[in-house]
Design a protein around this nucleic acid. Structure first.
Lengths: 256, 256
DNA sequence: CGTACCATTGAACCGAATCAAACGGGGTGG
DNA sequence: CCACCCCGTTTGATTCGGTTCAATGGTACG
């Protein structure tokens, strides 16, 4: 059952037998033959702290990453959709740094860590893997700033726009999408409560930015959402930039 | 002027001519001869987005990392003390992902990225560098959870305990330390306002947990602070764990 | 058809932000 | 040396966004 639609976005598409890619660079022979498994909603692909044994490109479905801090505080740190790869750990970590939980019954490939390492010898492939990791790190930083200094409406608008962008990258044309995650998950990701998320969604809908019913959601006014995200009203306030004393992209001397 | 006290904690001590280390593994010859520079308070070691050219082990002084999001939101993401290395970018990034600003006049070494790469060929050294990077990533995650789901007092207690731990690792014996960063910086890191930070410090002092005057600070009751951090009263409330639906270290099946 | 879970909505409360002074220390210039 | 100013900090009064507590409604599933 090779070549699911998500293969076309997969990190491994150039080295994977499952994916039929037109552009097949001469150097890269398709040496990867991943196995497939399905994970039931609520089950874990892997758990934080366990040794890294494999990575999991999603074929169909979605997942959340959950981090549990040393003191037992748990928080969702991200969502993954089909085409994303779960379990990629930066810095050659030997243990998973988060847990990955399926949001719905999910089909994925299983690429052993040995196979991954083997293919990492190929420079272009290695670069693309590292680029994905860097992108993930950037994502977490954006989330940090969002939670740390944006208001609830902005954070939620950010998430909706992000989900929409991802959905469109996967072929979604109109702005209608089905949220795989619960309000609680969204709230956890954004550092809010589920009530606030629910209220905010209703408010967005009442202002004509979106329409929601349960987990069916449609973006009606992307620009409006972007305006909320950027905090150009008409939601709440707080001005960007100009915070900590000396930190601006000023033109003081700097070594690099 | 080699071998500052901070050398004994430096990541590069085993390969650096400046550092006099007793245990000198046979394989690693001391081939690193870093140059030294001083950076004035408020100046940048390097700026986010610039190509990575060098890393900067701190000899004397301190710095803050500042991240600026695509939309212009700026936030402090961490503090570095003497012995720490600034500019280590994970995933072979070609540009700095944050800016590093000196909190005071700071002396540091300059290790070119080429020199770093050369030494990364040495497996034990490489592992220690990767370990530092992983530690930094973990730190940012803890910060994310702190900002996302802990209350102000807990966050501040966390920071104070962390600063104290770092200070003690550097030889500090009693709990007295001098904060190099402003209230604004602390507030930015913790996702609060400077007024809240100031008030909280006063409150901690009035309860006998610490004593503060301006930037002179002394920890009086570490256990008390730890209790505040862990949220065991006697400050505010909110119970840990048990958040997002299915995510607990339960014993559901998982692949790894 | 009943049960369980997720989502919505309302009312009251509270923590932290905001607005607004006053204070303190360190530096500069008279 | 002292007066003055600047900037970071402290403290107070007030507002407000988001949480908490609570009840109802909707949907899926056994």
């Amino acid at each position: 059952m090779p070549d699911s639609p998500s293969c076309s976005l997969c990190l491994f598409r150039h080295v994977c037998r499952d994916a039929s890619t037109a552009d097949l660079s001469p150097g890269a022979q398709k040496s990867l033959q991943p196995t497939h498994v399905t994970v039931a909603a609520g089950d874990a692909f892997y758990r934080q702290g366990r040794p890294v044994a494999a990575v999991f490109p999603l074929r169909e479905g979605s997942a959340k990453q959950v981090y549990e801090s040393p003191l037992g505080w748990r928080q969702v740190t991200g969502f993954s959709l089909s085409g994303d790869v779960l379990g990629l750990e930066p810095n050659e970590a030997s243990a998973y740094s988060v847990s990955a939980i399926a949001l719905q019954d999910t089909m994925c490939c299983v690429v052993s860590i040995e196979a991954l390492r083997t293919h990492m010898a190929d420079p272009p492939f290695r670069d693309s893997v590292l680029a994905v990791m860097r992108h993930q790190a950037e994502r977490e930083r954006i989330l940090l700033v969002a939670i740390g200094s944006m208001r609830a409406a902005q954070r939620l608008a950010m998430l909706l726009l992000d989900l929409d962008t991802e959905h469109r990258r996967r072929g979604g044309t109109d702005g209608s999408l089905t949220l795989a995650m619960s309000r609680t998950d969204i709230a956890s990701l954004l550092g809010l409560t589920l009530e606030t998320v629910s209220r905010l969604l209703s408010r967005f809908a009442s202002v004509g930015l979106i329409s929601v019913r349960q987990r069916r959601l449609r973006l009606i006014d992307r620009d409006g959402l972007a305006a909320v995200y950027a905090d150009l009203e008409p939601m709440p306030r707080q001005a960007p930039a100009a915070m900590a004393a000396h930190a601006g992209p000023g033109d003081e001397p700097h070594l690099f």
